[in-house]
């Protein structure tokens, strides 16, 4: 594994290189894409991106947790959590890529 961490800047760079838009516009587009996905999830919608994967919201009920330091029992409030399911295409590309190393 090369173990690098990519950020928004690297995604904008890819848009700049591959689509040929100016750098600042490429950065804005990356931001808009993330913002639209976030907005949709905030409304409780599932986001399905074919050949990538899907993001869904799961509602969790209240449960009793424990403060690991003090051992004290504390209620964990009901909440929504985001779950990501990778597409089979993503899974196989990752396995193939790693398999070559």
């Amino acid at each position: 594994m090369s173990g690098k961490t990519l950020t928004r800047a690297d995604l904008s760079e890819a848009v700049y290189q591959k689509v040929g838009l100016p750098r600042n516009e490429s950065a804005d587009l990356v931001e808009t894409v993330l913002k639209e996905i976030t907005g949709s999830l905030e409304n409780g919608e599932t986001v399905k991106l074919s050949s990538f994967g899907s993001f869904g919201i799961r509602q969790k009920g209240e449960r009793i947790g424990r403060n690991p330091k003090t051992g004290e029992e504390v209620p964990i409030t009901p909440r929504k959590v985001l779950v990501f399911r990778a597409s089979n295409i993503m899974k196989s590309r990752i396995n193939d890529g790693q398999g070559k190393k």
Partner: peptide, 18 residues
């Protein structure tokens, strides 16, 4: 391009932090 870049990075063994 954005989605593909994320997958390609992961396939190289990198992580993508947004």
């Amino acid at each position: 391009v954005i989605l593909d870049e994320i997958i390609a990075s992961l396939a190289r063994g990198d992580r993508v932090e947004l």
